[in-house]
Structures are given as C-alpha cells and as structure tokens.
Design a protein around this nucleic acid. Structure first.
Lengths: 111, 111
DNA sequence: CAAATATATAACAATGTAGTTATATAACTG
DNA sequence: CAGTTATATAACTACATTGTTATATATTTG
C-alpha cells in the first residue's frame, strides 16, 4: 500500500543490517541492537519503521518482542520493481538495434 | 555501489513516477516535468538523484538532455533484495510444507 | 515485594530533503 | 545578434529523519 514507506525503510543501512540479521531467523530487540553502536531506543524506532513498512512483524513473548521477516513489504516492492525490470529488459532486448542506430548515426562534436 | 542512494531514490513518489514514465521510453527534462505540479528545477534535482543512484542515464542532444532508464541501479537493488527474498521464501517454503502436510494429512490421516 | 530486564515513548538537537524563486549557461531561432 | 528555449545551480525555507538522554511500563526473578 505504501511504497514510500517501504523503500525509505530500505534506504537506511542500519535497517538493512537488521533485515539481514532477521534473514537468519527471529531475534529480539536486544539481540538486534547488540551489534550496533547505537542505543536501544534508536533500534526500537528502526524496528517500528520496518514494521510500518510491512517488512517485519513482531509477536509478544513475555517481556520480549521477537521480530521476524514479513513478506508483505517485499511483495509490494517486488511488484513495483517488476515493472521497471520489465522495461529495462525490453530496452536491453532492443539494445542491439539501438547500438547499431547510434553507430550509424554519429553526430558532430560535443562542445 | 550505494544501496542507500538507490533505495532512497525510489522512496520518492515523484521519482518513481519519473521512472514509470521512462519505462515507456526516453524523455527530456521538460517532458518529464510536464505532468507534475512542480517547477523545472525541482524535477532537475530529482533527475540528478536518479542519475546518482544509477537508475537513469542522460545523453546530450543539443540543448536537450534526454533521459532513459539505466540498469546499474536496478542490478544493485535486485542483488540485495535477492537475499531477503530468499530468506522469505525459505520461511514460507517451510510454511507451504506445513500446509501441504496438513492437507495431505486430512487425506492420509497422520501425526 | 524490590530489583533487574526488555522494550517503548517523549523531548530535543543535528542533519538531510524537497520544494521555491532567482539567475546562469548553452543552444536554437528569427 | 537578440530573444527564446532547455537545463542547471544557488540560496533559502519548511519539514522529516536519526540519533541522544530521560523516563515509563510490563515482565521476570531473587
């Protein structure tokens, strides 16, 4: 539903690192925070952003909130990127033709 | 080379719209700016961001700078996302397995 | 129950981003 | 050459983001 949120969630290296960690399996907030030189509240907020983007989900387990990857955000992203990917593939399918045209079409100098 | 740049380039709706337009084919700055209620300098800067992210490239054609999609940025993004996708598929591969087991258990009756 | 643990939230400072207007530069046009 | 067109850049404003510290809340534990 919200590509802005999803892509901007991925734009932060800390959040990508968190996702990479979660790719190995579920982890609690403290476990996720450990590798970073960053306070726990900062990590908590990154998790909130990731959750808002549908990239992770959390469950409640006593005082802990284990996080795991969630497919929703990725689905959205993949869907949008598919369109671009298709366009690029189409362009590069035509690349042979384009290059041939450019070569035979040479113009006079760039300034 | 820079995932931060690539993902945050995609995080803006104007930039995604520009990419969607470019998926239909090359366009000049003015052509790209036309559909938006936004000044030309603003669009110029969005294009700079997209170029910096390796998502578009520009050539010089007289006073015009036609833009087109470039595969570099996408490649980077795809590569990173592949890792997440794989993790998600692994998780959901397991889920499918569980569901399949449940379904076939209804038929075969077991655990 | 009191202390410790796990996490969330609020308030704030520093920095980044996206838009604006004004202006510069290069190329086309009459 | 003078004017218009196409694009870029600079200076500035408004708002968002990321991190910090301090503090709140719920849960586990001795």
């Amino acid at each position: 539903m919200n590509l802005d949120t999803a892509f901007s969630a991925l734009a932060d290296p800390t959040r990508r690192a968190i996702l990479a960690r979660l790719a190995l399996g579920e982890a609690t907030v403290m476990e996720l925070a450990a590798p970073f030189e960053m306070t726990q509240p900062a990590v908590s907020r990154h998790l909130k952003v990731l959750e808002g983007a549908g990239l992770i989900s959390r469950r409640i387990e006593g005082a802990k909130r284990p996080c795991r990857l969630s497919p929703a955000g990725m689905a959205e992203i993949d869907q949008w990127l598919a369109m671009l990917r298709k366009a690029l593939e189409a362009n590069y399918g035509r690349l042979d033709g384009v290059l041939a045209a450019m070569t035979s079409n040479e113009k006079k100098g760039t300034p």
